[in-house]
Design a protein around this nucleic acid. Structure first.
Lengths: 303, 303
DNA sequence: CGCAATTGATATTAATAAAGTATCAATAAA
DNA sequence: TTTATTGATACTTTATTAATATCAATTGCG
């Protein structure tokens, strides 16, 4: 009774799905037929789902089988790709640097970095990886990430880091909303107001920041929704589901009837992003890239 | 002498990379230390590359090791995700909600629905909940959701549903890209092209749709990235990380130098969204809202 | 300098898992 | 009814993997 999916199981599943015939699949795999049967059975057991509707005369993929086939194919080709990448590029991979980033950086900062690096360090191959802040901290620790564009400065103490983005929050509001005419809005105006909040897991940093803000001010908005993606915030505000606090980056995507309104907040309530890397980089390429990114972003601040 | 990479090898490699210590890694894996050594050795043999610079006093990742760690982590989590997807063990959502929607609906469809319902059924209080398609199916089953704006029609057989959005995919491409000048682009032009793919979990529907597309066509793009948010796709395309296939909704957010180009795809490759509800609604309010939403969306199609 | 502690590697043995052989029951076609 | 072909199963053999005990190498400490 195997307890985990194995590569053999996936390979058998793919082979059988190609031939729709256990014996032919076994032949293609250079093995006899019984183990193929067993591998499929074990795989089904692991997934707690039937992959084929089969009897001695016909083999048909079930819905789950069809679904799983795409994933199985993906996994196997991923494994093969990874081997090839390592085997082939053994020597030429000196200049690969992996960069994690939080989603909000993708729009503006990331193209800036990519362009700047292509000009200044063309020999470096960058691998970008979209991931949440705490995943990045883990990645930096384990070594799967070289550099991170991340929030959560408290977790960053053991790294080299510096703040590269610091944006104020704006009150995002539908033009129909009662607050849209008011001047000098503060956090106290949000008491009992329908409010679209960040998802506590995916948008952990902003969630905690705004939670503290409300807690300290003794303000209790009415959280109608927990959301993570910028465009969803904007859509919901447009749908008059409530107001939201968003960093200014998102401004350019504001749809009709949605306004980014200034709101007076304490100085520490800002949307900050840090560039972080290990204190002892594994190769000096990383440090070069780090400095180059800092340069690119510094130029941006000047502009 | 093993001839192929195994999952145990990858798990050992990840564990050792986390601890940077064979014995501790072995403990975490609930096994003794010698097999860990062997698995790493076999993996290195398979890859024909040293993963660690190690002696009895220290363990350090080599360049190849650093690179491979990214892939190993990705592969293992992909396997786990695939199992979860099939087993459908995803926990149900926190809180109780009424209308689930996939993120891509937030921008345009959702405000439309909210406005229309506010006019026609002002007494109904709608609770929106951003969630992935398969979470919605589960929500509909468990009763935490009344109505869903969702993909995955195959899972919807037991519900009342009808298609409310059907958009073609466009090739999203940087103007510098070699394909940007080509006419009559088809899926075959994507072979070996750097491609930004949907995340297999969060963007499961599109992931599977595009996987099938490539599988059927025998085309193998070079997946450089797995992403879920529209703005991240656009940012990465702008950063020349690769091309992507996106539904036309996203078009309006396209930044500079990024073009939505027509691509000839099979008729079944479309971005479809369905409105779904239980066949026996818990209250007749649900049916009213369902019909009202259909009405709102029908008017939109007319317009 | 020397001793204890800790590290990753190894040889040997024990346990486990996988593959092969032979065979079966079920089915469809002639 | 017969025959050929299918996937499943029982049993045996083989191969793989893990644990035990031990080693050599290194470091830190007094």
């Amino acid at each position: 009774m195997s307890t985990s999916i194995t590569i053999e199981q996936l390979k058998c599943f793919i082979a059988v799905s190609k031939e729709m015939n256990f014996r032919k699949a076994a032949k293609n795999l250079n093995m006899s037929q019984p183990p193929v049967t067993r591998h499929i059975a074990n795989l089904e057991h692991n997934l707690k789902a039937k992959l084929y509707e089969r009897n001695t005369r016909s083999v048909k993929l079930t819905k789950e089988g069809t679904l799983f086939l795409t994933h199985a194919t993906e996994i196997i080709s991923r494994i093969e790709d990874a081997s090839k990448i390592i085997t082939k590029n053994k020597d030429s991979m000196i200049g690969t640097v992996s960069l994690g980033f939080v989603p909000s950086m993708a729009n503006e900062i990331l193209p800036l970095i990519a362009t700047h690096l292509k000009e200044n360090l063309p020999q470096v191959k960058l691998i970008f990886k979209e991931s949440m802040s705490f995943e990045q901290v883990e990645g930096l620790n384990t070594g799967s990430l070289d550099i991170g564009l991340t929030r959560l400065p408290k977790d960053l103490e053991s790294f080299n880091y510096s703040r590269v983005v610091s944006e104020p929050y704006f009150l995002v509001i539908n033009d129909d909303h009662e607050l849209s005419k008011k001047e000098n809005i503060t956090v106290y105006d949000l008491h009992n107001i329908d409010f679209i909040m960040y998802d506590a897991v995916i948008g952990r940093y902003s969630f905690e920041l705004l939670s503290s803000l409300f807690l300290n001010a003794g303000v209790k908005p009415n959280f109608v929704q927990y959301v993570s993606q910028p465009l969803v915030f904007l859509g919901l505000v447009r749908a008059s589901m409530g107001v939201a606090l968003l960093a200014s980056t998102t401004k350019k995507h504001a749809p009709k009837n949605v306004t980014f309104k200034e709101i007076q907040l304490p100085g520490w309530v800002r949307s900050d992003v840090y560039l972080a890397t290990r204190k002892q980089p594994k190769n000096n390429m990383t440090l070069q890239v780090y400095n180059n990114i800092m340069e690119a972003l510094y130029n941006r601040i000047e502009a």
